[in-house]
């Protein structure tokens, strides 16, 4: 809960724990260029997911202002921006994780395969099985590696017997590139793995329920460079079968892994374009300021 509140734009919470420097009030004024709708190409044909007129409020405070964007099939879309810009909040809109925060309210139209995910008859439990999520800090459950991966399938009743489950666990771990390292230690606690392994375990856990979309919220920010490289490679493999939306602080990471990049600023979506274009020839002044390191 706190983690979420901290990423609010202009929030005054003083207990911020994030390492990166916050944009100061002065810089904000300096770069407070008018944001008038999203520039670039936010929309694609036949999108996997899409949002229209998305506003998010935490109690009285608005965190996201009128975001309109599509996420294409089997693409990796990166969301970047200074901290507190609302990118994580927006990501959590896509699998209704924000529903778990009582004071949080989301409006607008959000679809998955054209289906309204905020419709009355839509079920958040089912939605979250279809739109998986990997979190900033590796959060394996205090269970064995096997049970961690088997958690989702067991919940949802995806397998009918033990050997099917065994196969599914092995397949998921293999896809996450972890099976070789842990195949002899499946009954050991997941919390005993290294940070990078834990994060891949969390990816395997998400894959095990066979989602259509995987949301990744700064999945490598708690990891060392080598573990980060492995995860990035993994993402590249995963995009063959899944649609991935990743929030990242590292512009290099966005440039390396994504096809499209969305730049958020103070709760508004400023620019969406092909990654190459964003990093070489951004359309919006704010995007340029950010990627050239003048703030953020």
């Amino acid at each position: 809960m706190n983690e979420i509140l901290e990423t609010l734009p202009g929030t005054t919470t003083q207990s911020l724990q994030s390492d990166e420097p916050k944009p100061e009030a002065k810089t904000r004024d300096e770069f407070d260029v008018e944001i008038d709708g999203t520039v670039g190409q936010p929309f694609v044909d036949n999108p996997k997911m899409s949002s229209r007129n998305c506003d998010v409020f935490y109690a009285e405070k608005q965190a996201i202002f009128d975001v309109n964007v599509d996420i294409g099939r089997n693409e990796i879309i990166a969301m970047i921006g200074p901290s507190g810009c609302g990118k994580s909040t927006y990501l959590r809109v896509l699998n209704r994780m924000n529903d778990t925060i009582p004071i949080c309210r989301t409006t607008g139209t959000h679809t998955l395969d054209g289906e309204d995910i905020y419709a009355k008859d839509q079920d958040p439990v089912l939605l979250r099985a279809r739109v998986g999520m990997v979190f900033q800090k590796p959060n394996p459950f205090p269970k064995s590696i096997y049970d961690n991966v088997a958690y989702g399938p067991r919940l949802h009743g995806l397998t009918s017997n033990r050997s099917e489950l065994d196969d599914l666990v092995e397949a998921s771990l293999t896809k996450a590139g972890l099976f070789k390292e842990v195949k002899d230690d499946l009954q050991k606690p997941g919390t005993g793995l290294s940070g990078g392994q834990q994060q891949r375990l969390c990816i395997a856990r998400a894959i095990a329920v066979d989602p259509e979309v995987i949301l990744m919220d700064e999945p490598t920010s708690a990891l060392d460079p080598i573990a980060t490289a492995i995860i990035e490679e993994l993402m590249d493999d995963l995009k063959e079968s899944y649609t991935i939306a990743i929030v990242t602080h590292s512009m290099q990471q966005a440039a390396r892994v994504s096809q499209r990049t969305a730049y958020f600023h103070l709760g508004r979506l400023v620019e969406v374009n092909d990654t190459d274009k964003v990093f070489t020839n951004p359309e919006h002044q704010l995007t340029e300021n950010y990627i050239t390191g003048r703030f953020g």
Binding site: F135, N139, F141, P142, Y151, G152, L155, R205, V209
Partner: peptide, 18 residues
């Protein structure tokens, strides 16, 4: 129990009681 545990489970599509 850290919030991250709860998030992890909800993110998998678990209900509250699960």
């Amino acid at each position: 129990v850290p919030q991250a545990m709860r998030d992890g489970s909800f993110g998998m599509g678990a209900t509250k009681s699960e």
